[in-house]
Design a protein around this nucleic acid. Structure first.
Length: 283
DNA sequence: ACTACGTCCTGCTTGC
DNA sequence: TGCAAGCAGGACGTAG
């Protein structure tokens, strides 16, 4: 699934191939991915057709393309979404949902198997779309305020993993990167935010940055000129994960088998030795 | 105000 | 062999 580094790679591809282009035709092939566009699929297509893309922006895992109309296309890839730039006439992907033809020999395609992601037209233009004003900066953003993050984390009773997944506190961290960052910081995800030292919160933040930077370094070189790629097959996941998905395999630090536990209808992976549970169990 | 959890989706994997 | 349950999870709506 696309994490923040993959979304950033997509944004860069959009800058190269889509910014400055004009949409000549838009086909919405499935209504669900435009569900957030309340005026409906036809209005979505009409609002984009004939408009020129001015920029490609990102906040957390959200992307938006300001248009010359003063509006913007706001998108999220969800779990399985892809934004692809394909030559006109290329065979349709199995899960092609929206086709946006450009004034060029290629078109922008939104492909999404599970359709957790989607596109909408925002009235907010070039500024931060109002739909995502609640999304915090990501830790790689120059505007990210470490001190504010530390204060906010230490004001919460929730476990640190839950906090990392709260996009209003810090954006761009998903289930995988949360587990990786916590492994790097030697912290169990159930440790309450208000029981962590400032130093521990900084270590978690450092872990998040390390995971994201490493993935960006590796993923940033893996897309070719015309194919803006996002998928879960990033080589990063095969080579560099220390905790996520490694149940039963030895911790790289202490060789203790990594443990998997259920967490919010998903999974958490951690080293039971390096990342000890909080002393007082909330439940 | 803050916290926690169910829900949406599809397709691959697992198990009977 | 075939079918059904399990699993994956980002973000939102709502309940507590």
């Amino acid at each position: 699934m696309p994490e923040l580094p993959e979304v950033e790679v997509v944004r860069r591809g959009l800058v190269t191939h889509v910014v400055g282009r004009t949409f000549t035709r838009v086909d919405v092939l499935h209504p669900r991915p435009v569900r957030r566009h309340l005026a409906g699929p036809d209005d979505f297509a009409a609002a984009i057709t004939g408009r020129t893309v001015l920029a490609a922006c990102r906040r957390g895992k959200y992307l938006w393309l300001p248009l010359d109309s003063g509006e913007a296309i706001l998108g999220h890839l969800g779990m399985s979404g892809q934004l692809l730039v394909q030559p006109v006439g290329a065979v349709d992907e199995r899960h092609l949902r929206v086709r946006m033809v450009l004034d060029a020999p290629y078109e922008l395609r939104f492909v999404d198997q599970r359709m957790f992601g989607g596109l909408a037209v925002s009235r907010s233009g070039g500024a931060l779309p109002h739909e995502i004003v609640h999304i915090a900066c990501d830790p790689l953003d120059p505007d990210f305020d470490d001190a504010v993050f530390v204060v906010r984390v230490r004001a919460k009773v929730s476990g640190i993993k839950r906090i990392l997944l709260d996009q209003t506190v810090v954006s761009g961290v998903g289930n995988i990167y949360a587990d990786e960052a916590l492994w790097l910081a030697h912290l169990h995800g159930d440790r309450p935010g208000n029981r962590l030292t400032r130093s521990q919160v900084h270590e978690v933040l450092d872990g998040v940055r390390q995971v994201m930077t490493s993935a960006l370094d590796q993923g940033g070189t893996s897309f070719d000129a015309l194919y803006v790629n996002v998928n879960g097959e990033s080589g990063y996941f095969d080579r560099s994960l220390e905790a996520y998905g490694r149940a039963g395999k030895p911790c790289a630090r202490c060789s203790t088998p990594i443990v998997r536990v259920a967490f919010m209808n998903r999974s958490s992976f951690f080293c039971p030795r390096c990342q000890s549970r909080p002393r007082l169990r909330s439940r």
